[in-house]
């Protein structure tokens, strides 16, 4: 049993798979810093009374001096690019993971936690602690050596997938362990929840979706939505069993986020654009795509 578990966890994988995951997830992180600088600096404008530290920010006794945030975000942006390029990765990888953790936790310490950023932080952390720059990186170019097929490239991907399914499972179990667990599968809780959210958004003058207005009296839709959500979330760990199931599950979860967007106008960028699900796929297969084959050269083709 122990051996089977070890064989499963340390199943060899190509270095290119982990490296391409670093490139894909790293690109999301780089974009987060380059495209959302204003949002990341938003805490500078918030009144101090709104500061409610969470996670690692609880180490602080009060908000950081406002003038510290812009240079910190700039440094994190530089490290994000280094992470993406795989430049001095043994140093830049962990430093970037720590900066991302700190900056996002700090932003989440002002009245609201953006849960959609949880998995990004943890995925980057795993990539940073793993040899994910052994291929398709500046470090690999400098060393003139590329990683092959080894067990050290497999476990980080399994760990990333475990994190993903773990967060979904927790979201599902939260619904079934709260005081409304009996009503959840009927769809009434989710219906009331969405209605309340829509009311608040409309009255307050925030961005909202009109889809809920059209479907509010179609109770069967909320029943389907609630049951589907519970199956996807509580059943998420099954996605770890085999690759085919994981792809079906990923497709279902992907669809769920787009449904949430259309009904509630809530955007989960990391989920809606599929970044969270890429570790479930053999991403190195994209190298077989003809235009990429021409760019990376035939010697860079990867065999599993």
């Amino acid at each position: 049993m122990k051996k089977r578990l070890a064989d499963f966890w340390f199943e060899p994988a190509p270095a290119a798979r982990l490296a391409i995951l670093r490139l894909i997830i790293g690109a999301f992180a780089v974009n987060l810093f380059l495209g959302n600088r204003i949002k990341l600096l938003a805490p500078m404008r918030f009144p101090e009374s709104m500061f409610e530290p969470v996670g690692v920010i609880r180490l602080l006794s009060g908000p950081m001096p406002a003038q510290l945030l812009p240079p910190l975000v700039t440094i994190a942006t530089i490290f994000a690019v280094a992470f993406w390029l795989g430049l001095f990765f043994r140093f830049t990888g962990p430093v970037f993971a720590a900066l991302l953790w700190w900056i996002l936790t700090y932003r989440n310490s002002w009245s609201m936690i953006f849960h959609y950023e949880n998995v990004l932080v943890l995925h980057v952390l795993v990539l940073a602690l793993a040899p994910s720059a052994d291929d398709f990186s500046v470090d690999a170019l400098r060393r003139r050596a590329r990683g092959g097929n080894a067990e050290c490239y497999g476990w980080p991907i399994k760990l990333m997938n475990l994190i993903t399914v773990g967060t979904y499972a927790f979201a599902g179990f939260a619904k079934l362990t709260g005081p409304t667990w009996k009503e959840w599968p009927t769809g009434e809780v989710v219906r009331a929840w969405i209605a309340h959210d829509q009311l608040r958004k409309t009255v307050l003058g925030s961005h909202s979706s009109d889809v809920i207005v059209a479907i509010y009296d179609q109770k069967w839709m909320f029943f389907v939505f609630a049951v589907g959500t519970l199956i996807l979330e509580c059943g998420a760990p099954i996605a770890l069993v085999n690759r085919r199931i994981s792809r079906v599950w990923a497709a279902g979860a992907f669809l769920m986020h787009w449904c949430i967007y259309f009904i509630m106008a809530i955007i989960f960028p990391y989920h809606m654009f599929g970044f969270i699900f890429v570790p479930f796929f053999r991403v190195e297969k994209i190298l077989e795509w003809r235009p990429l084959r021409w760019i990376v050269g035939p010697q860079n083709q990867v065999s599993d």
Binding site: G55, T167, P179
Partner: peptide, 18 residues
């Protein structure tokens, strides 16, 4: 907490009257 959460917002019922 962040980035580890137990999603407390899913545990309660949102009232119709607000």
């Amino acid at each position: 907490s962040f980035p580890l959460s137990f999603y407390p917002m899913f545990r309660g019922l949102r009232p119709d009257r607000a």
